[in-house]
Nucleic acid binder design. Structure first.
Lengths: 114, 114
DNA sequence: CCGTCATGCAACTCTCTGGTTGCCTTTTTG
DNA sequence: CAAAAAGGCAACCAGAGAGTTGCATGACGG
């Protein structure tokens, strides 16, 4: 696999993460987990404007993107962040930015050569 | 503004970027601009599965998120990537990941203290 | 055992959004 | 100038998605 294909694959994999984080409620949940540590659905709902069911749905979406995962403890369900995918997505964005900046540099050199 | 508020603001600002990149067609457009340099709507459409109008709409969404901007040249409209917002979003993800990992480290230390 | 707390399941509403088609305007170019 | 190229505008449609309500189930504490 060429470096270019590898980059494309990375970006494609990151798409679901972007999609998951593109919603205000979900992004808030992620931010709260990040700073507040592992929490149950009820805890997360108490600091949210929406219903518990809505929170549950959002957590499922985040789990689908591999951004969070749950651990059952008695009658409650604790949700934890999964930093790996977030870092992958972060790296993908960084690669896109870098490649673009390099392309602009090459263009600049080309133009100035005249 | 506390560091925590600053982080929250950064994350909030990144939301529109995540939302914009959460779509397959738009992510493809961004990737193509990144590697192929500035391009017109027609050029972007020719390598796409969807209609020119669809491409235009997607570019507008990306522009709304500050990820791209256009330059008019004669009868055509050239689109360019804007790496700044992408880097902001990348940094936001990185911060979330880091804070989470640090929180887990603290928790680990706390547990092992017994 | 019983009430309560935490959650699951399902149906339903409403809005947003990705995509299309049809037609019109502005530049180029032979 | 006339045809072709590039793009803009508007209406329309089907499906996805966010959120809600109502009811059912499982685990805990007294």
């Amino acid at each position: 696999m060429s470096p270019r294909d590898a980059a494309t694959a990375t970006v494609t994999q990151a798409r679901s993460v972007f999609s998951a984080l593109g919603d205000q409620t979900r992004l808030s949940l992620v931010a709260r987990l990040s700073s507040g540590g592992p929490q149950s659905i009820s805890q997360l709902t108490s600091r949210s404007r929406v219903t518990r069911q809505a929170v549950t749905k959002h957590l499922d979406v985040l789990a689908g993107a591999g951004v969070v995962h749950d651990i059952r403890r008695g009658r409650e369900r604790i949700w934890e962040l999964d930093s790996a995918r977030l870092q992958d997505a972060s790296r993908a964005l960084d690669q896109i930015s870098r490649r673009w900046d390099e392309a602009l540099d090459r263009l600049k050199i080309f133009v100035e050569r005249d």
